[in-house]
């Protein structure tokens, strides 16, 4: 019975993509699918263009892709019905990106300390984010990524 109710509630959540723009920000809710990374990227590109931040676009877009990909894989565990919330905002010459998933979180302190192996086929997501953002943190639970970088 409970399973039936849950299934009923989550029905249709595998095709969510809602984007809204604020004067200095962008908010997106998306189902956990790889196709939605491309859609979020397109919106991010448009937002950065509107803000005159083309020079920073590659760094921000690639970090966004890594953050959402990690959220899909590790937070949502591949469940398309789980929603990810992504926001980007410009605040006092700083760009702040937040990506929150519905997962149970992870031990991000240990993961951030581990360095990538450059001859390994995987495990570069956090390293890429750290290469472009001065500040890479999570909330205590470990299900919300917060990236900050100064914009000159």
């Amino acid at each position: 019975m409970l399973r039936h109710i849950v299934r009923h509630i989550v029905k249709g959540r595998d095709n969510v993509f809602k984007a809204s723009r604020r004067p200095n920000g962008l908010d997106i809710s998306l189902s956990s699918t790889l196709e939605n990374i491309d859609r979020a990227d397109k919106n991010t590109k448009g937002f950065l263009h509107g803000m005159g931040l083309e020079a920073e676009a590659f760094a921000i877009r690639v970090a966004m892709r890594e953050g959402i990909l990690n959220a899909i894989r590790h937070g949502s565990c591949g469940d398309r019905n789980r929603i990810i919330r992504y926001s980007l905002r410009l605040e006092n010459n700083s760009l702040i990106m937040e990506i929150e998933d519905e997962g149970s979180g992870f031990d991000w302190r240990t993961s951030l300390e581990n360095k990538h192996l450059s001859n390994s086929g995987s495990g570069r997501g956090l390293s890429i984010m750290k290469a472009y953002f001065a500040d890479v943190t999570f909330n205590d639970k470990g299900n919300k990524l917060i990236l900050r970088k100064k914009i000159s």
């Binding site: 690639v62 086929g121 995987s122 495990g123 570069r124």
Partner: peptide, 13 residues
């Protein structure tokens, strides 16, 4: 125009 960690993983493998 864009490559991510999964794409880099493909090249490294």
């Amino acid at each position: 125009q864009m490559i991510d960690s999964v794409g880099i993983g493909l090249l490294v493998a």
